[in-house]
């Protein structure tokens, strides 16, 4: 279906799908400037499963919102597939968000009035996919995350883990270049956490690039690479081969 998805494992090539260059973000807290990001640079290869960890206020969520174009950096650049998205105008941002990024939130952020199927479907509406194709794809994705029998359930009728799986299916709907997951296991129990992490790992093995922001070191340990943030800077960047 997409460049990012294949049925089996595939070798990860060396071309970075995401390049962050000298990213800075300064917020004003009243009259005091607060540096949330201070010169962050790194590359992410296609299909990489990466986690960003660090204490609260270290800048990891800010970094995620810069990559997801939910916020603009004060300085520096973000490139996705070689295109500098940090320079995109406000009017171009929605197109980048729907074509390049898939979001998974801690609290799922599903629309409570819509069914699981419709929650996945809605992500494709803005790209102009015809209704029958949307339904077909939503069903396929929900089946892939193990919710083929729950398509007509509303979020309130689903468990936390199931809701997060709907949210992952939704993030995959438009075949994004990168999935950004902000504390995807933060609101689920340990057992469900395993299911979610396995699901994300499986997607990564199929070539999907995934960046996870997490507090949970158990989750981070299961990713290919861990970037640790401290005071808006990268404190360490360890790949799986280097992990002890």
């Amino acid at each position: 279906m997409s460049n990012n998805e294949n049925n089996g494992k595939q070798p990860k090539n060396d071309e970075p799908i995401l390049r962050i260059m000298n990213l800075r973000k300064t917020y004003m807290q009243g009259k005091i400037p607060v540096r949330a990001l201070d010169g962050v640079s790194f590359d992410v290869k296609k299909g990489e499963f990466l986690s960003i960890v660090g204490p609260s206020g270290s800048g990891k969520s800010t970094l995620l919102s810069m990559i997801g174009l939910l916020d603009k950096p004060t300085e520096g650049s973000v490139f996705i597939d070689g295109v500098e998205i940090s320079r995109a105008k406000e009017s171009e941002a929605p197109k980048v968000r729907r074509e390049k990024i898939g979001f998974v939130f801690q609290h799922f952020n599903l629309l409570s009035t819509l069914s699981a199927m419709e929650n996945v479907d809605i992500a494709m509406r803005f790209t102009g996919v015809p209704k029958n194709k949307r339904r077909e794809r939503a069903f396929e994705l929900l089946t892939r995350v193990g919710l083929g029998d729950r398509v007509n359930h509303k979020p309130s009728e689903l468990s936390g883990g199931q809701q997060q799986r709907v949210s992952i299916a939704r993030a995959l709907a438009n075949n994004p270049a990168i999935i950004l997951a902000d504390e995807p296991t933060g609101a689920v129990d340990t057992k469900t956490r395993e299911v979610i992490v396995e699901l994300l790992r499986g997607l990564s093995e199929r070539g999907q690039t995934i960046i996870v922001v997490t507090h949970d070191m158990d989750v981070a340990q299961r990713t290919d690479r861990i970037i640790t943030m401290r005071d808006g800077m990268i404190a360490s960047d360890i790949s799986s081969g280097e992990k002890k």
Binding site: S91, P94, K95, R97, R98, E99, F103, L111, I122, F126
Partner: peptide, 16 residues
């Protein structure tokens, strides 16, 4: 408010 935020994160444009 939050719903519109979600829709925007999903790529909804102002016109939507």
């Amino acid at each position: 408010t939050k719903e519109f935020g979600i829709l925007k994160a999903l790529g909804a444009e102002r016109k939507d």
